[in-house]
Simulated scan of single mutants.
Amino acid sequence: MIINKESSRSITVPRKNSRKQRIGIVVSNKMNKTIIVSETKKVKHKYYGKSIIKKKKYMVHDEKNISKNGDQVKIMETKPISKNKCWRLISVLDKIG
């Protein structure tokens, strides 16, 4: 918390560790220390109201190569590791096989 000298009000500063987290399914693990995770969302169309499924793929850093295809994983945003990789693996929620 920072206190302003001119006034007695306190200004709150956002926490540094408030990073985005996602849950998705591993689509590919063919690369070394990298997996591709697909996240699906069900969203209603703004005007028509119809449900639409939106998919997004993330390249995720997997240091120990512990995840396999079909696993459900939790990922977190991090500083850029390579050109396309700015997410890292937190944990494997559900293992397949």
Rank of each mutant, 00 (worst) to 15 (best):
C86R: 15
N4R: 09
I25S: 04
R19M: 03
I90Y: 11
P80S: 12
V13C: 03
N32C: 00
T34N: 02
V27I: 08
T78N: 10
I36A: 00
S7T: 15
V73S: 09
K95T: 12
D94E: 14
R9A: 06
I23K: 08
I75Q: 10
K44V: 00
I53M: 03
V92K: 14
D62K: 08
S8T: 09
V60N: 07
E6C: 08
K57D: 02
K95F: 11
Y47C: 00
K33C: 01
S51H: 08
K95D: 01
G70M: 08
V73Y: 14
S67P: 06
R15W: 04
Q72H: 14
K83Y: 13
M31V: 05
E77K: 15
T78V: 13
K64Y: 15
C86A: 09
K44M: 00
S91D: 13
L93K: 13
V43T: 07
I81G: 02
K79I: 05
K56Y: 05
I35P: 04
I66V: 13
M31T: 05
G24F: 03
Y58W: 04
L89M: 09
I75R: 13
V60I: 09
S8L: 07
I66Y: 14
C86F: 15
S7H: 09
P80Y: 12
S28I: 02
V43R: 09
I11E: 07
K56Q: 04
K33Y: 07
K41G: 00
W87V: 04
W87A: 04
S67K: 11
E6Q: 09
K20R: 11
S67V: 15
K42L: 00
N84S: 11
K85C: 14
W87Y: 14
K95Q: 08
E63C: 06
N69H: 14
L93N: 14
V60H: 06
D62W: 13
E63S: 10
R22W: 06
N65S: 13
N84K: 15
S82I: 10
K46F: 09
